[in-house]
Write a protein that binds this DNA or RNA. Structure first.
Length: 476
RNA sequence: CGAGGAGUAGCGCAGUUUGGUAGCGCGCUUGGUUCGGGACCAAGAGGUCGUGGGUUCAAAUCCCGUCUCCUCGACCA
């Protein structure tokens, strides 16, 4: 029975050598997603969606604490909105899906399926804002967006994906910029405490920034193979969108002024980041805060008297303590269940058999380091402490890996050697587009984030005085 | 769009060279024995071989067309 899956587990034994294939296989196999009928779309299955729900819940709590409200804006955007901001339309035109027919007729004006909502939200904000008393206006929406990508991979790059996009308007540029950085810090804290994932944060280069933004900031996570994954971005728009959509207010001095806008977003890509940051030879390893099932109980010798009753009682005890518990009382063999739930990344497994019940104990298996330990049967405190420890260890492990794989480079050759070795490469950069392009051509690496303050001596490419310290990496 | 590969049962594949009644493993269904690291026995269901045309007594197999998907590039959260 289940020889297929057994083979599969063997096949994924070496993650780092065959990472993209491992990733796709494990995501499909663990039933997080399925491919949709339209190329590049994914069907998020309940187990995968539950991860997203947990991310949403944790993120939403942070937004609300920061004073941001949720709202919803339309899926369809008039084509003319897109063309109002020159850089924006140029950036998104190649990847938008367009509705040309509806109601059995050709539409007078084509409608764009939102690739992001800056334009329509700018339009509405323009109507809602009249006075300085209306500012700041800070809203967020959870929705789907569509970008017609050429090559796709579940969660990491799909044509349609789920995300949150927050949009704020401020009376001054300073406030809007401050909020842009504050949200970046919020994301960083979220990555650490909820996803147990370390990230690098910083400003994006001109080349990498959002279409229509003055400045873009991002957080980058390191995957097993040393590639970088952009996991969240925040954008300061200045008055670009405010001017395009007439977001004006009457200030205290009676003058009519344009607002300053900013936006920020994270997507279902975070799930991909999780999988690729923590996953190992046995499959997924999910951080307890987002794991759909935090504890799985596997009864041993279920038909022996008292075993099922004991597992049900344990489940109830843990559930009452607010732990997400699953009791696997299917008639698969225990070995099958062990592998199944390990593959699905459940942080903690409890094995309970006649011997344990007699001794008043339970066997705990932690997924992060794959080790077993004993605890008193029904000891909720022990379970909670172990879950907390798993979160902490997962973060530390990922952080140590990332920091051990950041190297410095003073030349293109050193950079190439660095990224070939699966590292992030820290280097000086003069700020010229030509040098950035040359790095891309020479080492297939791009500038992920940069730091304006701790400036390195010289540009690794042209040798001129460096304006920025940049982290270069190959990226997904 | 450039290069390569693949379409046969739910999944993974064999069969194509040399045309001859559609096969294997897993999964699924039913019954039974099991259960501390992917158990076993028995019985069963399931396929217009991507698609259109051609050659032939006969095509998964040969010929021509066409569609789709995957991998690697260019583009991107």
């Amino acid at each position: 029975m289940a020889k297929n899956d057994q083979q599969f587990v063997k096949e994924i034994a070496d993650i780092e050598s065959d990472f993209p294939q491992w990733y796709t296989d494990v995501v499909l196999k663990t039933k997080l997603v399925d491919y949709g009928p339209v190329k590049g779309t994914m069907v998020i299955r309940p187990y995968g969606y539950a991860i997203w729900e947990n991310i949403q819940r944790e993120m939403d709590a942070r937004f609300k604490a920061a004073g941001v409200e949720n709202a919803y804006f339309p899926l369809l955007i008039p084509m003319s909105f897109m063309t109002k901001e020159a850089e924006h339309v140029e950036g998104f035109a190649p990847e938008v899906a367009v509705v040309t027919h509806a109601g059995g007729e050709k539409l007078a004006e084509p409608l764009v399926v939102r690739p992001t909502s800056e334009t329509i939200i700018g339009h509405m904000f323009g109507k809602w804002i009249e006075s300085w008393r209306d500012l700041p206006l800070r809203q967020n929406q959870w929705c789907n967006v569509m970008r017609w990508e050429k090559t796709t991979r579940p969660f990491l790059r799909t044509s349609e994906f789920l995300w949150q996009e927050g949009h704020s308007v401020y009376a001054s540029g300073e406030e809007a910029e401050k909020e842009t950085l504050a949200m970046l810090r919020l994301y960083e804290e979220f990555a650490k405490n909820v996803l147990c994932m370390p990230v690098l944060t910083g400003r994006k280069t001109e080349k990498e920034k959002f279409a229509g933004a003055v400045a873009t900031y991002g957080m980058e996570a390191m995957m097993h193979d040393g590639k970088s994954l952009q996991s969240g971005t925040t954008h300061y728009m200045g008055q670009n969108f405010a001017q395009a959509f007439g977001v004006q207010f009457t200030d205290k001095d009676g003058a009519l002024k344009y607002g300053y806008t900013m936006s920020y977003g994270v997507s279902t890509r975070l799930i991909g980041a999780l999988i690729m940051t923590h996953g190992d030879q046995r499959g997924l390893v999910l951080p307890p805060p987002v794991a759909p099932v935090q504890v799985v109980i596997v009864p041993i010798a279920m038909k022996k008297p008292g075993v099922l009753e004991a597992t049900h009682a344990l489940k109830e005890t843990l559930e009452n303590a607010g732990i997400r518990v699953k009791l696997d009382d299917t008639d698969n063999s225990p070995g099958w269940k062990f592998n199944e739930w390990e593959m699905k990344g459940v942080p903690l497994r409890i094995e309970l058999g006649p011997r344990d019940i007699e001794a008043g104990k339970m066997l705990l298996f932690r997924r992060d380091i794959c080790e077993k330990q004993e605890a008193a049967l029904g000891d909720v405190k022990a379970v909670n402490e172990l879950l907390a420890e798993i979160s902490e260890k997962m973060y530390i492990k990922a952080k140590e890996r990332m920091h051990s794989r950041i190297v410095n480079a003073n030349s293109l050759e050193e950079l190439l050697a660095g990224v070939n070795g699966g590292n992030f490469v820290r280097a000086g950069w003069c700020g010229e587009r030509a040098c950035e392009d040359k790095v891309k051509e020479f080492a297939q690496a791009t500038a992920r984030v940069m730091d304006d303050h701790h400036t390195a001596e010289a540009c690794l490419c042209c040798g001129k005085k460096a304006k920025h310290t940049v982290f270069f990496a190959r990226a997904y």
